[in-house]
């Protein structure tokens, strides 16, 4: 019954903490259903039983009953106090992180998530964590307020500029979990998504070693197409020629690009490489200098793949 209801009402449970939140959620759910049925039932009964039968109806003078008032004040009051303590209890579980948690730094900016692991490896929009080990996220934002939300973990925390906020979790379900930005942050707020990969210790360590050498067996352009999505390029750049926050990639390679300062430049491999790593160096006319720098955040093969991918967008 609970599993069936959960499949309708809630996402899967990716942590044991999610399970304890869900217990409370279902208590609230059943309590809500009970009170709604009570109110709707009484209402329906009264509406039918006491419907007007004609102008000769007489109504009694019933205007107060102190006992009843006390009863229907105290019962809800004791219920909500009980709920408060339950909710507070689980909330504190999430607020206090265990001392041995592994720390990962999270930097949010419009509209990407960047993760830095203890060994210095960085990844974009993809968080890799080991199974059954507590992980603590130390988060900050470079621009506006974002919010780190993983529905399957039942955790959420605003990410503030100029302040660190933190979250922790112990993932118990291997596989992919979705990460959303839950605090409205502008145009591509709904595309500021990420994926959390929960792997067993061995796979996770391998990933850390190789720096997540994904796509090593892929052709460059295909790998680039994957990065285009996973690194969040697609939040601002399109490949079908429509205008986004940034210029479309369609037909850009080999063209003469008009810059903000009036000059033009040929879009060759070096121009594209520079635009990825140091985007503020040359701003295309008609666009804002809002792209974050990717210097030090992409490995050589990833840059090559992206350049190859953009070259292919004719």
């Amino acid at each position: 019954m609970r599993d069936w209801l959960r499949s309708i009402l809630l996402p899967a449970e990716g942590t044991s903490y999610a399970g304890s939140v869900d217990s409370l959620f279902f208590f609230l759910f059943y309590m809500g259903v009970f009170f709604f049925l009570l109110i709707a039932g009484l209402l329906t009964y009264f509406l039918i039983r006491y419907r007007r039968r004609g102008p000769d109806d007489r109504t009694p003078y019933i205007v107060k009953n102190h006992k009843l008032e006390v009863v229907w004040t105290l019962i809800p009051l004791s219920l909500v106090i009980f709920i408060f303590f339950w909710g507070f209890h689980t909330y504190m579980d999430a607020a206090v992180s265990p001392g041995d948690a592994m720390e990962i730094r999270v930097t949010a900016r419009k509209w990407v998530w960047e993760f830095e692991y203890p060994n210095g490896i960085r990844s974009l929009n993809e968080l890799h964590v080991p199974l059954n080990k507590p992980v603590k996220l130390l988060m900050t934002s470079e621009d506006v307020i974002h919010s780190f939300y993983v529905p399957t973990f039942r955790i959420k925390q605003d990410v503030l500029p100029n302040t660190y906020t933190q979250l922790w979790f112990t993932a118990k379900e291997p596989g992919m979990h979705r990460l959303f930005c839950a605090e409205y942050c502008g145009t591509s707020h709904s595309d500021m998504l990420g994926r959390i990969f929960v792997d067993d210790e061995k796979t996770y360590n391998e990933w850390l070693e190789t720096g997540g050498d994904e796509g090593k067996d892929m052709p460059l352009a295909e790998f680039g197409a994957m990065l285009f999505k996973s690194r969040g390029c697609n939040t601002c750049h399109t490949i079908d020629g429509t205008r986004g926050e940034g210029p479309s990639f369609r037909g850009v390679f080999g063209s003469q690009v008009k810059l903000q300062d009036g000059s033009t430049v040929l879009a060759d491999e070096n121009y594209i490489r520079e635009s990825i790593l140091r985007p503020q160096a040359k701003i295309v006319a008609g666009y804002q200098p809002i792209m974050p720098t990717f210097e030090g955040m992409l490995r050589e093969r990833e840059i090559n793949a992206l350049v190859e991918f953009i070259k292919a967008q004719r």
Binding site: V21, T90, Y91, K156
Partner: peptide, 8 residues
């Protein structure tokens, strides 16, 4: 209003 449920 319930703390931990609201977080979700």
């Amino acid at each position: 209003g319930t703390l931990s449920v609201d977080v979700h």
